[in-house]
Write a protein that binds this DNA or RNA. Structure first.
Length: 271
DNA sequence: ACAATTACCTGTATGC
DNA sequence: TGCATACAGGTAATTG
């Protein structure tokens, strides 16, 4: 569920809520969510540590701790990370970090596909969660257009390109659909056949959609909750889904894309 | 270098 | 009501 705008919203909420606080206890309820750290290794490494910062790369959340460690959280499909003082833990709580001053950070994940990785901050680049992902989409800033024209010199389908985190990290299935709808591009378009104008449209759709979605605190279709536990507000502003034409479902690599064949013609006649 | 498939999990919606 | 099936926002490993 969570793509760049959702993960960014979680990070911003957590930055407010947990930076400067100290961990008293770590509790892991499911071992299989752990990456390169054991349940027994996690708790002592975090005990008494202060949260120094919360940042994001692509869809990964980086929680920097005192003592030179960083906790990397990936929410995958249904993971949620929220800071709360509520006592009752919801069903599917997989891990919690209790703070010295009361309250806790919770990782809740119905499907248990999300992951927690603990790594020395100095070795961050080698983290399993990060080693296969490219630069964050928003890190390109104003250079996104020129970066795109280089990256799009491949023969793959546009949809596959947008979902591939090696090139641009952060776009997932929902925003890929929305971005292609707004750029009026068909998901099967071969990247290297895009015209210069289409590349410009793509670049601006990427920036516009992601920034807008962050402003609205992300999209909640079912599971997503921000770092304060509340749903996002962008779902009603997704235009592709509300297109009055007939929306067609297509499948690539087992993932659905919703396309409006009128707005996103496969063979575009304009340049 | 790329695409397609499968696996990892569980909940929900749908059809019979 | 029960049961089977398909599907869901992600990623990695495997195979072609």
């Amino acid at each position: 569920m969570p793509e760049l705008p959702e993960v960014e919203t979680v990070c911003r909420d957590l930055r407010q809520a947990i930076v400067g606080r100290r961990i008293a206890h770590t509790r892991i309820f499911r071992d299989r969510i752990l990456v390169s750290v054991s349940r027994r290794g996690m708790a002592p490494a975090l005990h008494g540590r202060e949260i120094l910062g919360v940042t994001r790369r692509g869809k990964a959340i980086l929680i920097e701790l005192s003592g030179g460690r960083t906790l990397i959280v990936h929410l995958r499909m249904t993971g949620q990370l929220c800071a709360t003082r509520e006592r009752r833990r919801p069903e599917h709580t997989r891990a919690v970090w209790e703070f010295e001053d009361g309250g806790e950070l919770r990782f809740v994940d119905v499907r248990c596909l999300g992951t927690l990785e603990l790594i020395r901050t100095a070795d961050l680049a080698q983290a399993i969660t990060l080693r296969n992902i490219g630069p964050d989409v928003l890190a390109f800033g104003g250079r996104l257009q020129s970066a795109l024209s280089g990256l799009l010199r491949r023969r793959s389908a546009l949809k596959s390109f947008l979902l591939n985190q090696k090139h641009l990290a952060g776009i997932g299935n929902i925003y890929a659909s929305e971005i292609m709808y707004r750029a009026r591009l068909h998901p099967d378009t071969v990247c290297c056949e895009l015209t210069a104008q289409q590349v410009r449209r793509l670049g601006s759709a990427i920036q516009r959609v992601l920034r807008e979605a962050i402003r609205y605190r992300g999209t909640t279709i079912s599971d997503y909750r921000a770092g304060n536990g509340k749903p996002g507000n962008y779902q009603s502003r997704l235009r592709g889904r509300g297109c009055p034409g007939v929306i067609v479902r297509m499948v690539h690599n087992n993932r659905s894309t919703y396309v409006c064949p009128v707005c996103q013609p496969e063979r575009s006649t304009e340049r």
